[in-house]
Design a protein around this nucleic acid. Structure first.
Length: 495
RNA sequence: GUCCCUAUCGUCUAGUCAGGUCCAGGACAUCGGCCUUUCACGCCGACAACACCGGUUCAAAUCCGGUUGGGGACGCCA
């Protein structure tokens, strides 16, 4: 069996969105599974809308996700000669014809047909039967023409076996004579895409369901070009919670892969989520390693109905699909802490929290601290924000615990400096979970207050947060000196 | 309007092809409880779905027909 070759051909008219990422992922998965190749091809023939920024964004997004390609990026515009040659070949063989109808004429006809609720609003074939003389005449008059495909009028059906949808068939009469080359000579998507897939020896074309009608037309092009058909697969689109197709235009950053990078997602967590959005192996397995997913994936288990990406704009609790967040949490808690340490490092550097000792002498402390606090976090970003007090002194104290645990008990103003001096009396060796706890509890008892008063107050002062790990674990990690300093400056909260 | 795809908890889904083991399983979310010095951790529990109508059959989530709902396509965009 020959090598499988798949491709991901984005048009660089915006960022990489999760729908595109899912398509890329499925192609990548299958290429890996079969020991084949994934080709990245930038379809930039729409020069009006293509931008370099978008090209970089797409490549960056794929790179972040870890979806690597074996060939490319190729640029479609580099192969214009191939596209034109194919068009010429089809013109000579009679598979396509010149059409002199103007855009305006067609627009008018189409609108009229729509308004009349006609079943066929496609091209009416006006130029299909022009004689050689008529064509020569129009050309001599300088009338520009497009190249249209001459769809067979044999009354039969055209069909192919879809990897995901099963057998797909449509009658020829439903397909209009579509345009392959613009009047300015530029070949269009339908043609370029096929020519490139043939040249790149693509064996599997897997793309969104929105391409299904294109596929019918492209099958005709393959036949006209005498090229063997690749396998086609059409995956259902990803919808928003109102069941509308997700798009860059109407949903903005929430559907951008970049957004997830910026919000502290672990790349594989997003892949794992995306893989399960419309696909399942048929069991209850939810978390897959890269290797497991490559092994388990199959096109025929992709759900044929479209899946909803369940995010709610302005939801205070979930900034995106809760399931995606929960998957991210899972990886955040279970990945080897060294890997988390690497990912967090980038954030820390950007947030001015990174110290080179964290990669050296204090590496153990750094990882131990991350390991302790990751239990309650949702994203990689939480380490530098919610966890800031563990790594720096310029942390902010959250308003809620401040009110509840500090301001309500003004006596803490006297108690904490006293507690600080008791802690100060401990030798560094005595700075342990047990000792710090004993002292705090003994002091509470001495004062006749519940230990919670002291403990929650300390947590607030020392970490700035209402929630967190066991307090005495925290104290040990943050260190004697810092804890003492923070307890001593209790005064400042009542100002 | 025409054509194509599709229909199981709020969401992602298992089960459908090979009808009975499914008064439908899992996950996330939600709610309740437990744990606890706090908590957005953890543990336990609850709520919650076969779109509708008809047919086939001893038996239908599963097969067939229709209805309705949802999505997509109908560019000299990709």
């Amino acid at each position: 069996m020959s090598e499988t070759r798949l491709r991901f051909p984005p048009s660089p008219t915006g960022y990489l969105h999760i729908g595109g990422a899912r398509t890329a992922l499925y192609n990548w998965l299958y290429a890996k599974q079969t020991g084949g190749k994934l080709i990245l091809r930038i379809e930039d023939t729409d020069t009006e809308r293509s931008t370099d920024e978008s090209i970089h964004g797409i490549i960056e997004g794929l790179e972040w996700l870890g979806i690597d390609f074996d060939e490319g990026p190729y640029f479609q515009t580099d192969f214009e000669a191939d596209h034109r040659a194919a068009a010429q070949k089809m013109l000579e063989s009679g598979a396509v014809y010149k059409c002199f109808c103007t855009k305006e004429e067609l627009e008018t006809k189409r609108e009229a047909a729509m308004a009349a609720k006609k079943s066929n609003v496609g091209y009416d074939g006006t130029c299909r039967h022009l004689t050689a003389e008529q064509i020569a005449e129009k050309e001599a008059a300088g009338i520009p023409s497009v190249l249209r495909f001459k769809v067979p009028q044999c009354g039969g059906e055209i069909s192919y076996d879809d990897l995901i949808m099963g057998r797909i068939a449509a009658s020829y009469s439903e397909i209009e004579d579509f345009v392959l080359v613009r009047s300015n000579g530029k070949p269009l998507y339908l043609l370029c895409n096929v020519v490139d897939d043939i040249r790149d020896r693509i064996t599997h074309v897997v793309r969104g369901q929105d391409h299904m009608t294109n596929t019918l037309k492209q099958v005709l092009i393959y036949e006209a070009l005498g090229a063997p058909l690749p396998r086609f697969g059409h995956m259902p689109l990803t919808l928003d919670n109102k069941k509308a197709k997700i798009s860059k235009r109407s949903h903005g950053e929430i559907v951008a892969v970049q957004f997830y990078k910026e919000h502290g997602f672990i790349p594989w967590a997003l892949n794992n989520f995306l893989a399960l959005l419309g696909w399942s192996a048929g069991d209850d397995k939810e978390f897959y390693s890269k290797e497991e997913l490559i092994k388990a994936f199959s096109f025929d288990r992709i759900n044929r109905s479209s899946a909803v990406f369940n995010f709610h704009k302005d939801d205070p609790k979930f900034f995106t699909d809760p399931k995606a967040i929960s998957m991210n949490e899972h990886y955040l808690r279970t990945m080897p802490i060294e890997e988390i340490g690497e990912m967090v490092r980038k954030d820390f550097e950007a947030e001015n929290l990174w110290q080179k000792e964290y990669a050296g002498d204090r590496k153990e402390w750094y990882l131990k601290t991350l390991d302790l606090i990751r239990e309650r976090f949702h994203t990689l970003k939480d380490f530098a924000s919610l966890g800031r007090a563990y790594f720096a002194d310029d942390y902010t104290v959250d308003e809620k615990p401040l009110k509840k645990n500090i301001l309500k008990n003004e006596s803490l103003k006297e108690w904490f400096p006293e507690l600080a001096s008791r802690y100060e009396a401990l030798s560094p060796e005595e700075w342990t979970i047990e000792k710090t706890e004993d002292i705090a509890k003994a002091y509470a008892e001495e004062l006749g207050v519940k230990p919670g008063i002291i403990i929650n107050g300390m947590r607030t002062v020392v970490t700035g947060q209402a929630a967190g790990p066991s307090l005495f674990d925290i104290l040990v990690l943050i260190g004697q000196q810092k804890v003492i300093q923070r307890l001593q400056k209790i005064d400042s909260f009542y100002a």
